[in-house]
Design a protein around this nucleic acid. Structure first.
Lengths: 250, 250
DNA sequence: TAGTGGTCTAGACCACTGA
DNA sequence: CAGTGGTCTAGACCACTAG
């Protein structure tokens, strides 16, 4: 038989480290408590700082830790559930579910967004920026694209750029009868502007929620919302019940 | 005025690198094409391999690249859209939407799952393992928890562990009238067993989809599905239309 | 200004793939 | 077997935060 090669797969150090830390977090730390700094933790576990950081990154990705430069590493609270599958069909802005209009401009969306809208490239598109705040915390940044052709009254808006203009666009949108919507969720990394809005570094993991709003005439608007992946759990309840906490895996 | 400190924020190298590579991918590479190896790329850009790898990791997170040990780095195809918001309420297994039963055992779920089920810890729970294949590719691994008390006929199942037993449990489940369901999506990292099933390394980023199935009697089952975050885009269409492609951000 | 996490380097060795 | 990506080290400097 010779070497049966059983368990010949050595677990990577950072993986083992992550497990150990994860258990320590469950047992010995309270939410908000600050961990020892990286250099000390690395020394304590007898690994290089880069290796320790690999473990910390994973734990942050899973929403267990929160790291802030110049401050330290703290134990994160459970992820907040944010409702995304809104109660049936509804235009954005109807039930102000923590959404706050920030700005509105006329611009040319990216090719990808144009494709979703299904409109020609030379048509003006209103772009509304909103942020979503839940429990005092910025959880999402959204860009809502509304082709001028979608709503007749839209071209008459003359409010200066700013929250007022954004509100005006949303108000016009709600005159239309919404026919349906279409949503997709994928992983992405925060662009610089979104990262700033979400108080994260560029490249931070985010959940990209793309929504298309339909009327009888076709796609009337497209929303691209960027949710903080570290602190958010998106909920799509169609019953009134709410999942209150998950830490389902492992 | 002195130093106005404009642009005093030097863009990190890996961030700039990511941008450059991203543009190169759009212009000079076809899907499936293999990139030069990491050591050569690092040399070509004049950075350390670790720095280059930081850029590659981001691009892989965004679904632009695919890296396989011993093989190389290739340009990834666009993410596949997988329907998750199934057509109205439906028990798992009804429309076999690429789901393949793998196994079924009686076990004790984790505390978190027990909490979701709302059942006492001493009650037997059937655990069904399934995998989902779309376009020839494993995209998800699921654990479906069904308390024996949910379905009367469940305790009579005597099929040996394996796909047959899994199918038997699912068949029993469909006798019940489904009252509603409840879903949440969050970011996670693959456990070792799921990673193996999904042909990824442990710790790979995944989208955790937790679903609760309700009957009049309460929570009848809980599903925890692990989707590959790099290759999947979860879709929640309630109209028949489908988002075909996204690369919305940036 | 002291201390934190974030970035970066230049090496080394290992695990895996495919010819 | 040669070549790939994955892990790991032991440093260094920088950007940021708070006292």
């Amino acid at each position: 038989m010779g070497t049966t090669q059983l368990e010949s797969v050595p677990e990577p150090k950072y993986w083992h480290l992550k497990t150990v830390l994860s258990e320590a977090l469950d047992q010995d730390f309270a939410v908000g408590e600050v961990l020892p700094n990286e250099r000390e933790l690395a020394a304590r576990f007898g690994v290089a700082r880069a290796t320790l950081r690999q473990a910390l990154e994973q734990l942050e990705l899973e929403g267990r830790l929160q790291r802030r430069r110049g401050v330290g590493t703290t134990v994160a609270p459970p992820r907040v559930g944010v409702a995304v599958g809104s109660p049936q069909h509804s235009w954005p802005g109807e039930c102000a579910d923590g959404w706050e209009p920030v700005d509105a401009v006329d611009g040319i969306p990216s090719a990808a967004v144009l494709k979703l809208l299904g409109t020609p490239a030379d048509q003006p598109v209103h772009t509304v920026r909103r942020t979503r705040v839940t429990q005092g915390q910025a959880v999402a940044a959204e860009l809502l694209y509304v082709p001028a052709a979608s709503v007749p009254g839209l071209s008459a808006i003359d409010a200066p750029a700013g929250p007022a203009r954004a509100r005006a666009v949303l108000r016009e949108l709600q005159r239309l009868a919404l026919d349906g919507q279409d949503r997709s969720v994928e992983l992405g990394s925060a662009r610089a502007d979104d990262a700033k809005e979400l108080d994260r570094l560029p490249g931070a993991p985010v959940l990209l929620v793309t929504t298309r709003y339909f009327t009888a005439a076709g796609t009337a608007a497209v929303s691209v919302a960027t949710y903080r992946a570290d602190t958010c759990r998106l909920t799509f309840g169609d019953s009134g019940v709410e999942i209150t906490e998950t830490r389902a895996a492992s």
